[in-house]
């Protein structure tokens, strides 16, 4: 079942279309990556899904129900982690989570239980009584997440949850995302850190100028540009090398030798580095360096949109 369906949604501000006839589905159990430069329409889309903005045209369904007709249903099943920290400095970590969870109708002992659970989950269980001003950037980010998950939403939307934090906290957050996913949450994750998206997302959409340009798994996206990879191997002596035998290694498409480097073109999906190196060792080639140049999402993005993700 699709947790989220976006059908031909357009959002205009005056004459400007921030989201332009976008269609998209997120299936249950996915970690769906939303990739795009600033101003590409990611946040506008997310805001429409979480009912902060109304779509100018088109319809959005959450768990099979139209959000315009059943706003409360959609809202109760979504947890949103905003891009900017959205917490109260005058409330303790516990009170922050408790307040936001309380907005979803949790009361009494259940509210207490869920609040503690959420704080425990993001690793702030022992900081429950502290005020956010004593927190590091990463801890604040984690509290920001805790505020969105205490009511156990089916769909969690994370808008750049790792902006400007230390690697440790970042790792912690990525692990939490995976853990939440294992617990059955569907997650929409936007980021302009390509590596993060590549690491955790099961499906990715590339957005530019309010449109979905490409959509699919990492492998599918990478294969948009090319289905081959280049392996560059630096050798000391190239005289003994049998080009024919190298060509017979499974997956290898072409072989050329330039300036003491063997440049192999190979099918991207085949992992044949071992065989290639074995072959070279047999031929007594003295290997100095090995470099694999597979297409990454960054290059896919650059090729399709003509600009870098972090412009």
């Amino acid at each position: 079942m699709n947790v989220l369906n976006i059908r031909n949604v357009t959002k205009t501000f005056g004459d400007f279309a921030a989201v332009d006839n976008m269609s998209l589905s997120v299936r249950e159990g996915e970690i769906f990556g939303f990739l795009g430069a600033n101003g590409a329409g990611k946040s506008t889309t997310i805001h429409m899904v979480s009912s902060l903005l109304k779509a100018t045209k088109g319809e959005i369904e959450v768990l099979g129900k139209n959000i315009a007709k059943h706003p409360r249903f959609a809202k109760s099943n979504i947890g949103i982690v905003p891009q900017d920290l959205a917490i109260y400095e005058q409330l303790t970590a516990y009170e922050n989570v408790q307040f936001f969870a309380g907005l979803y109708g949790l009361r009494g002992s259940l509210l207490k239980e869920r609040t503690e659970e959420a704080l425990e989950f993001v690793g702030l269980g022992d900081k429950a009584k502290s005020f956010p001003k004593s927190f590091s950037g990463g801890m604040k980010r984690r509290l920001n997440i805790a505020c969105a998950i205490a009511h156990r939403p089916k769909l969690i939307i994370m808008d750049e949850p790792t902006v400007g934090i230390d690697p440790h906290s970042r790792n912690y957050i990525l692990q939490s995302v995976l853990k939440l996913n294992e617990m059955g949450c569907t997650i929409i994750y936007t980021s302009h850190y390509m590596e993060e998206v590549e690491e955790i997302c099961t499906r990715i959409a590339i957005v530019d100028h309010g449109k979905i340009i490409a959509e699919g798994t990492k492998e599918q996206l990478k294969s948009i540009v090319t289905d081959t990879k280049e392996i560059w191997i630096g050798v000391r002596s190239e005289s003994n090398i049998s080009v024919e035998k190298l060509k017979n290694v499974p997956g290898v498409v072409s072989v050329r030798i330039e300036d003491g480097q063997i440049k192999l073109q190979s099918k991207a999906e085949v992992n044949n580095l071992n065989e290639v190196i074995q072959q070279l060792i047999q031929d007594n080639a003295d290997i100095r360096s090995v470099e694999e140049q597979a297409p990454n999402l960054e290059s896919v993005f650059l090729t399709l949109t003509g600009r870098n993700l972090r412009d």
Binding site: R72, I80, A86
Partner: peptide, 13 residues
């Protein structure tokens, strides 16, 4: 200013 408006608007209230 505190960005919490976003959370409040997204909550089912």
């Amino acid at each position: 200013v505190r960005n919490t408006a976003l959370r409040l608007a997204a909550a089912p209230i």
